[in-house]
Write a protein that binds this DNA or RNA. Structure first.
Lengths: 232, 232
DNA sequence: GCAGGCCAATTGTGATCACAGTTTCGCAGG
DNA sequence: CCTGCGAAACTGTGATCACAATTGGCCTGC
């Protein structure tokens, strides 16, 4: 399995461990690493062409964000496995945090934000039409966080960040299984409408609905089973 | 400044970086490290009598939880400084997450939990009576998280953990400044009452009130100024 | 007396190595 | 053919070193 996605460049200025973190994070958010799968510092380092040291830093960071799990017994690393309980908690937490961020963003919206979001939503639709799961996951993430970042709420944004990192594997599994049935974009449109109308509460409701719907899709698929991955 | 608090022992089985993490975490939660203060890997390592390596691991973890800040320019470490905006966000996030945890805990309460909480609440009261800020902070933390842990909601618990880590310095500053005026314990009693009566919603309300009150105290003290610490 | 520049100390980062624990795989014995 | 055992490979952990960047202080020159 290769971790490194599309090398976007311009990251050369960052520290090595930051680039490693970004790579792993992207791989997790877009679901490129299967849940339950074990990883190791040295293998990741070899994959990314760096020494184990910066990988260790990045992994520690991801473990702190619960995007990677550390087996307390043998200290080995793995992608957290999917359980119904975890999903319910993530859904609840998202529904508490993200609508607030959306509302705050809407309260200080501007034209450039709206146009950027329109462009991202178009990418989402395109990815859905093409059935490109990876691109859909990336574009959907970009849409939400371009909006959220505009809320200028660093603390809440960090929480949302961590939650998406944890829920990425879930989404990938379900979309990989049932295909990208054309459901997602609708609430994005409603959110954009709310932004245009300067109606923060409408944006809040739209995002809340978007989250609820995505979570229902995950629930309906029944990801409760351990999902050992690796099989096949 | 010494970081290491009361060495509780029994931690000798853990990895070194875990003990370092626990030490720093405890120092932050009880507010033993002043906000805005700069720290360095080597100085911390010297303080704790270990090599810089495990300190580096622990610091990375704390930085990921936003309990420590890394200056993006010179990469230097510091305790996050206190701003009114950060406080508001932390207050909001706490009020969203923690009542939920309290309710879940209450829904599966048992006698041993109640008695443990009673004992901890007594310690809180004692610390308040004695004006022992450090002990109060530790006991208050123990009370809340003994309750929260009982909710068996790992994801939400992690979020609450991170929030307390961030809000510790605020609490220490205000209690150090205005003294531990005897306000805090009341809602603990209401929560215990709710647990006894098997009334989860009452427990939820009590915890929500407890958070709101603590946050009001912080707000009233006006921690908005940069608070360079270090002075005096 | 004060400003500016130079040098030493300190910083985080990354590589490399040693080590102990665990896992894994193959081979020998039944 | 199956079961056990032992060695080899692999795991995370921690220490030590080198390095570039930044900081801080001292001294010189005005």
């Amino acid at each position: 399995m290769t971790i490194s996605g599309t090398e976007t460049g311009a990251t050369s200025r960052l520290a090595v461990h930051d680039r490693v973190y970004a790579s792993l994070r992207d791989a997790l958010i877009t679901g490129r690493i299967a849940p339950g799968l074990g990883v190791s510092l040295r293998s990741l380092a070899a994959d990314l062409g760096v020494s184990p040291m910066p990988v260790r830093d990045a992994v520690r960071r991801l473990a702190a964000e619960r995007a990677l799990a550390i087996n307390p017994a043998n200290k080995r690393l793995s992608v957290p496995s999917l359980t119904a309980d975890r999903l319910e908690q993530l859904a609840l937490a998202r529904s508490l945090i993200e609508p607030e961020l959306a509302q705050r963003a809407a309260e200080q919206t501007d034209a450039v934000l709206i146009s950027r979001l329109r462009r991202l939503d178009a990418t989402v639709d395109l990815a859905l039409a093409e059935g490109d799961v990876g691109r859909y996951m990336a574009a959907n993430h970009a849409f939400h966080f371009t909006l959220y970042r505009h809320g200028r709420a660093e603390v809440l944004l960090t929480l949302a960040d961590s939650l998406w990192l944890q829920i990425g594997p879930f989404m990938r599994v379900v979309f990989g299984r049932i295909g990208t049935l054309g459901l997602a974009a609708d609430h994005h449109m409603a959110a954009l409408e709310g932004l245009q109308q300067r109606d923060p509460m409408a944006v809040r409701r739209a995002i809340a609905a978007d989250i609820a719907m995505g979570m229902d899709a995950l629930r309906a698929d029944g990801v409760s089973q351990p999902t050992d991955a690796a099989e096949d």
